Amino acid sequence: MEERFFFASGFSVPLTIVKSDGGYTYDTSDFAAIKQRIFEEKADWIIYVVDSGQSLHLETVFGAAKDLEWYKVEEKRIEHVGFGVVLGEDKKKFKTRSGKTVRLNDLLDEGIKRSEDKLVEKGRQNVLTQEEFNAAKEAVAYGCIKYADLSHTRQNDYVFSFDRVCF
């Protein structure tokens, strides 16, 4: 099978639509997704919230969709809102496909465990009812996690650490 590419105007890197083995790529799925959002969902404004490392890829997909006259910039907004890359303590990018990332449930569970330990250390279990103690440990954990996430500039990369996020 012959590989199929699409060169969007103004971009030197093509989108690979079909690989030589007949398989598909992120280019294929992202290209299909933008078409579906424009034609089936009739979206007027599409916002891609994806790490900044994907900027060129997304701009190429947007450019190809414009070249094919799937949309006009005067009529529809299609934007990339980039954010920094989450790095492991080894300073390497977390890659979701490798399975070596921290799952949200695990982060929340660790936050609750650490907040409970801190509350016990301060003797709060002696002055709060069990219901109040449970509410306090969740409030402290989730508050710390939210603060850690919101306390850095969105576009900057950051190193993930349970110690930074959960106290």
Rank of each mutant, 00 (worst) to 15 (best):
M1W: 11
M1F: 15
E2W: 05
E3G: 14
F7C: 03
A8H: 02
G10C: 12
F11D: 04
S12G: 13
V13N: 12
P14I: 08
L15T: 08
L15C: 04
L15A: 11
I17M: 06
G22C: 03
T25A: 07
Y26K: 15
T28L: 08
S29C: 15
D30W: 02
D30M: 11
F31K: 04
A32S: 05
K35C: 04
Q36E: 06
R37N: 05
R37I: 05
R37W: 06
I38P: 00
F39N: 12
E40H: 15
E40Q: 15
E40D: 15
E40Y: 15
K42T: 01
K42M: 02
D44C: 06
I46V: 12
I46M: 01
I47W: 01
D51N: 14
L56F: 12
L58P: 00
T60N: 09
F62H: 00
K66S: 08
D67T: 07
W70R: 13
V73Q: 11
K76G: 00
K76L: 12
R77C: 08
I78C: 04
V81E: 09
V81H: 11
G82M: 08
G84K: 01
G84H: 00
V85F: 04
V85K: 07
L87I: 08
G88T: 12
D90P: 14
K91T: 07
K91W: 11
K92S: 10
K93M: 09
F94S: 01
K95F: 01
K95M: 14
K95L: 09
R97S: 09
S98H: 05
V102L: 04
N105W: 07
D109Q: 13
E110D: 13
E110T: 12
G111K: 05
I112H: 01
S115L: 02
S115E: 05
E116Q: 07
D117L: 11
D117H: 08
L119T: 02
G123S: 13
R124Q: 11
N126D: 12
V127R: 13
V127Q: 03
V127P: 04
L128A: 04
T129Q: 09
F133W: 07
A135T: 09
K137V: 10
E138M: 07
E138L: 06
C144Y: 10
K146Q: 10
Y147A: 15
A148S: 14
D149K: 11
L150K: 11
S151C: 11
H152I: 15
R154P: 02
Q155Y: 13
Q155L: 15
N156P: 04
D157V: 06
Y158K: 15
V159G: 06
F160W: 03
S161E: 06
D163N: 15
R164G: 06
V165T: 10
V165S: 10
F167W: 12
F167G: 08
